[in-house]
Design a protein around this nucleic acid. Sequence first.
DNA 1: GTCTATACGAAGATAGAC
DNA 2: GTCTATCTTCGTATAGAC
Lengths: 201, 201
Amino acid sequence: MAATRRARTGTRPRLPDARARMITGAIDSLRVHGASATSIDRVLAATGAPRGSVYHHFPGGRTELLGRALDAAGATMSEYIEHLTRTHDPMTALEQFAALWRHTLCESDFRAGCPVFAIAVETNDDAPELAGTAAEIFARWHRALTEQLLRHDYPPARATRLASLTVAAIEGAIVLCRIHRETTPLEDTVTELRVLYTGGQ
Amino acid sequence: MAATRRARTGTRPRLPDARARMITGAIDSLRVHGASATSIDRVLAATGAPRGSVYHHFPGGRTELLGRALDAAGATMSEYIEHLTRTHDPMTALEQFAALWRHTLCESDFRAGCPVFAIAVETNDDAPELAGTAAEIFARWHRALTEQLLRHDYPPARATRLASLTVAAIEGAIVLCRIHRETTPLEDTVTELRVLYTGGQ
DNA sequence: GTCTATACGAAGATAGAC
DNA sequence: GTCTATCTTCGTATAGAC
């Protein structure tokens, strides 16, 4: 609909869809700089999006921008996790996921982390809606892992617990990798989780 | 020395040692609000410390305050971890440590997390010194855990990896507990780690 | 060591023109 | 949809009196 209007009026944005660019720019900033440091100015500077249309696209201002970024990042990551857990066995899925993170960490020179986790760590008083959304996203990941383990004959109690450990350990390891500027914590984490995934049930 | 001068001049601060109060106030703020949100104003408001002496005690300003808070928090936590790992077997030490966190989480209504982790997650461009300090603290914890496992006859390679997983998983679980407002992720994490700590070596 | 006052900049948000 | 002010608040930092 924006396209038709553009064709009619002859106006044109600098790049396709400023709103979408702002959202992806916010996600990138969340990864690298965290929630508090993800200001409107920073997103605009990084994306070249027009300052004048921020409150047009996000009437709720900065909080709404962060919310839409969290929604988008959460959906993308959740769909990938659900895809992996449905098409692979638990250990293979975990290794695939870890490989993606290894790539993200190295490619960003250990600057980029998990945007959902960034909001989870920083959000407390302000924006309880963001905290709620982040909690739902983690719950979705936990559910995907639990169901996968159940399909592979893990007892329900163990499946839930192992899913909790997996989410906690991967997220924690990503932070350790960033701060140490090496992938060892992630490798170590996956290697040890392998014992639980392949060993006893 | 401050006490003698106080006795001589007759002046007196509102409470003992403004500098120490600012540091503990900064640690509390780091726990609850994160690094970016830990402003000088917030620390002063929370502690009632005098605004006029901030740059007297911390010539480097906010960054130095955060640095001293990180030093203090890191030292306290490291000493406790080293105490636990020296006086208990691996599983008991882990459970003691988890019990402390369960208490901290519940008592703070799931608002307080780990101050070192908060800085690790948020610090990127600004203040590389803080990032370096945080990395050293995590390395110290990792070392304490590794040496404990070595003393309990774990092979070196496994000891290192299990120590990495433990640090990552506990830190990650604390964040999940905060965002979900329940201790289940921590309980699950410890229960599953128990398998690795007591099962195979 | 502590106070007040103030300079300065960054950031969120609004108003009104185009 | 986008632009240019502008307002306001907040946060860091400094200066100078007590």
